[in-house]
């Protein structure tokens, strides 16, 4: 029951993108087409879960026992950056199809605050292993969901007559605001 609660809260109520405002740069950058949004969403889910497992292990088994919590920023970013590189190399060698689908997005993920943000939230709330797994996968899925939905709206937006000064980033942000409003409606659930 507790895990279901975490899952719903991470996916909808505290949606990482629209509720916690993490990962906005790729959100505006790659949401112009549904296909690219799906690619990015898949890459995020993949890397976020892996990164959470690694950062959680390092935090619980190395940083905490030795009282080195102040090093978390430095270690987390290094883990994420090297993990992304590693995943890229392995995928290139082992699974060409997956690499072609995710390749471009993987490089972008290093500076995506959603991955780092999830890792930091896990460390801050001192979650257990299973909680961490549920939280990271559901946050990433929530991010992907918001990204794909938003890309759908943006494709439609291209066809409508937007005032000239509002075109581009401006209307995208206002649309995101309205979508965030819809996601706020989930707050009653938890």
């Amino acid at each position: 029951m507790e895990y279901i609660y975490i899952a719903i809260s991470a996916t909808f109520v505290n949606n990482i993108l629209l509720g916690q405002y993490l990962g906005n740069c790729p959100f505006l950058g790659v949401s112009k087409k549904i296909e690219t949004a799906i690619g990015m969403a898949a890459a995020i889910v993949f890397v976020s879960i892996l990164a959470s497992i690694f950062t959680w292990s390092v935090f619980t088994f190395v940083l905490k026992p030795f009282n080195l919590e102040f090093l978390q920023t430095l270690t987390f970013i290094l883990i994420i950056a090297s993990l992304v590189q590693l995943v890229e190399i392995i995928l290139k060698k082992k699974s060409r199809a997956l690499y072609n689908a995710l390749g471009v997005y993987l490089a972008l993920i290093t500076t995506n605050c959603a991955v780092m943000g999830v890792a930091l939230l896990i460390a801050k709330n001192e979650m257990g292993f299973l909680e961490m797994l549920v939280f990271s996968s559901c946050s990433a899925i929530g991010y992907g969901l918001a990204l794909i939905l938003f890309a759908g709206i943006r494709e439609r937006l291209l066809l409508s007559a937007v005032p000239q000064v509002m075109q581009g980033t401006s209307i995208a942000l206002v649309t995101a605001g309205i979508m965030a409003l819809a996601f706020m409606g989930f707050q009653g659930m938890a």
Binding site: Q164, V165, S170, L173, G177
Partner: peptide
């Protein structure tokens, strides 16, 4: 002051700046 307001505020400022 809630999450949606942040998006709308920045979007509006961008539009004003474009204007």
């Amino acid at each position: 002051v809630t999450a949606p307001g942040a998006f709308v505020t920045i979007g509006t400022i961008l539009a004003l700046q474009n204007l």
